[in-house]
Design a protein around this nucleic acid. Structure first.
Lengths: 196, 196
DNA sequence: GCCTCTAGCTAATCGCATTAGCTGCACTGG
DNA sequence: CCAGTGCAGCTAATGCGATTAGCTAGAGGC
């Protein structure tokens, strides 16, 4: 049997894959150890505790989500960027529900916590998506929070199986993104109309 | 010492108050028992398990939220109903974060689960709020999901301390509700222009 | 070839949910 | 008013999952 040479990073990666399968609250040290072919206490040679492990998964998830969104909006702007970014986010959550749950449960441990820059990068992507709409600076923070809320809300409700009725969830998401896009564009025109 | 005569309902109520204080994931049978002035195993005379307890909290929360929202939109319609309902929901989540977390974590156990009608009543209120906008029937489900997503998303992000920047969160929420309202009103007129 | 360093192991501890079995009090029927 | 019954609460015990202590052997450096 091959010596896989475990590291904190590889353990975290395995744990992330595990939570996506069994759900974040079903994460257990025993289950993870079994997947890695080692005994439970051996895990503590790589991570400090289960809380530490969860935090590492959260950092990984935030970094991955940040990359995914940034790649999606690359070279796009305005409506296209919004649609691509939102879809990328939703897809990420759908494919990695456990990781996303870990990221949501995480709280920064301090100013030097890698989780902080990772989430800032995600926020930066959201901001970039909005920049194309030429919003009034005073509105930007509100628009950003609205955008975050709606995408986060949709993704978590979907992941939790909150949409029961058999109407296409894909279609609803497209509708939602369109709705936001139109609202943002209307805001721009009415704002400048006032200025004019 | 007064005999408080515990019941499943009173235990659930105490547990709900407890989770609002300490957070849903910090709920423990020992802590609850201590609050009630009894020993941990005695709790099992009233609830079947911790999972059962959590589920009862979820049902309570959903029922309370449903009542609160319904009361808020009483006698209002259109934009007013939307604003009042959304505010009521957010306020409920802010005042009862633990209960709300319990409700989100809950999954219906069957068709006779009281959780089902309780959540349906909440959904009915959302639907009532939207009815004033005279949306195209085919759009209603999407609008409903969008509305749920944005309010749920905002409330959970706020409860999780997700809004770091020191801009007024109240103001952001008002902005958000206004944004949705305007979009819905505009959507009525340009509903058929979705193809774009 | 020897030494050290450490991943992994076994055994033990701890906290918390849950179960088993006992007991006294409160309310019922007579 | 009294015996009988039911149940809330208690203590003691079980079990599982996280975590810690202490040991061991194999890999890489000298």
């Amino acid at each position: 049997m091959p010596k896989a040479r475990l590291t904190p990073a590889s353990v975290t990666e395995a744990a992330a894959a595990l939570v996506d399968e069994v759900g974040f609250d079903n994460l257990s040290m025993g289950l993870l150890a079994e997947r890695l072919g080692i005994k439970t206490p051996s895990l503590y040679k790589h991570v400090a505790s289960q809380a530490d492990l969860a935090h590492r998964i959260a950092i990984l998830a935030m970094a991955e989500a940040g990359d995914t969104i940034r790649d999606a909006i690359q070279g796009r702007s305005g409506s296209d960027a919004l649609a691509a970014g939102a879809q990328a986010m939703r897809t990420y959550v759908r494919e990695h529900p456990g990781r996303y749950a870990a990221a949501n449960a995480a709280r920064p441990t301090g100013t030097d916590d890698p989780f902080v820059p990772a989430s800032e990068r995600v926020l930066a992507s959201w901001a970039a998506m909005l920049s194309g709409y030429g919003l009034d600076p005073g509105q930007e923070i509100h628009a950003m929070r609205t955008l975050r809320s709606v995408v986060h809300g949709f993704a978590t409700l979907e992941a939790a199986g909150g949409f029961q009725i058999d109407a296409s969830v894909d279609e609803s998401f497209t509708w939602l993104v369109n709705f936001i896009d139109q609202g943002l564009r209307a805001g721009v025109t009415s704002a400048s109309a006032v200025a004019r």
